[in-house]
């Protein structure tokens, strides 16, 4: 008994696939953006000279890193109705064309808190590898704490941590697949959808796999291009 492959269903149901792809993109792009900002904040808290601020940073990192992402999603989704608590989310949802915004934002929030801890660690590693002299030179020119960190330390740290940051962006794209468990109609959800409609799970999974491969490759190429551009600009490469 051999399996009857029917690849035509993919064309028949291509709308489901494109909808899923766009939903994954929305989760990923907004998630990456917010996770980067949050990760930056947390990393600055962790390297703060103030004992208690750095302690809070440690608490955040350990807390959101050790709780599985799916648990965080379920906790937020089932406990709170985010769109009730934060009415501005409704406006944001219609702006980005997202329905069932409660699921979307629960998943997004969990993705951001979870991934931001890893990005914070990457940036923190970058900050630690910058020679202390950089901070001293900036201070000796009379720069304030904010100026020193945002003009001198932070740009160099991000450059050093670019590889690990890229990995975390790719992880976020992969982890967005968990949103299907709370009902967000992203790519992996569509695999199941198509399978339940046509019993062609194998074909659906193949298509979705190729799309994830594309997303992963596209992200690392894009990040690589940015890295090379920055390197050429600062004379690291001729």
């Amino acid at each position: 008994m051999t399996y009857d492959f029917n690849w035509a269903v993919l064309i028949e149901y291509k709308e489901l696939l494109t909808d899923g792809f766009i939903m994954t993109l929305k989760l990923s792009v907004i998630g990456i953006f917010l996770a980067f900002i949050m990760g930056t904040l947390i990393s600055l808290m962790r390297v703060s000279k103030n004992f208690f601020i750095s302690l809070i940073g440690v608490y955040y990192t350990e807390f959101f890193r050790n709780i599985p992402l799916i648990v965080q999603m379920f906790f937020i989704y089932f406990t709170f109705n985010l769109t009730d608590i934060f009415p501005f989310l409704e406006k944001f949802a219609s702006f980005t064309g997202v329905e069932s915004s409660n699921e979307f934002f629960s998943a997004l929030l969990a993705l951001v808190t979870y991934t931001s801890t890893y990005i914070a660690e990457a940036i923190r590693g970058g900050i630690h590898s910058i020679p202390k002299g950089q901070e001293e030179a900036a201070k000796s020119l009379g720069m304030s704490y904010i100026q020193t960190h945002f003009l001198i330390i932070f740009p160099q740290a991000v450059k050093i941590a670019w590889g690990p940051i890229t990995s975390q962006f790719i992880n976020l794209i992969k982890n967005s697949s968990l949103a299907m468990t709370i009902g967000v109609a992203e790519l992996t959800f569509q695999t199941q959808e198509i399978d339940s409609l046509t019993f062609r799970g194998f074909e659906a999974a193949t298509a979705v796999t190729l799309i994830y491969l594309f997303l992963t490759l596209a992200t690392s190429s894009f990040m690589g291009v940015i890295e090379r551009f920055a390197l050429i600009k600062t004379g690291g490469m001729k």
Binding site: P131, G133, Q134, A137, A138, S140, G142, S144, P155, T234
Partner: peptide, 20 residues
């Protein structure tokens, strides 16, 4: 302190120029 540092410039052993 920032004003004091403006009045007292420093040159370091390892230059500490901003590479970026």
């Amino acid at each position: 302190i920032k004003k004091v540092r403006q009045e007292a410039g420093m040159v370091f052993q390892h230059f500490n120029l901003f590479p970026h």
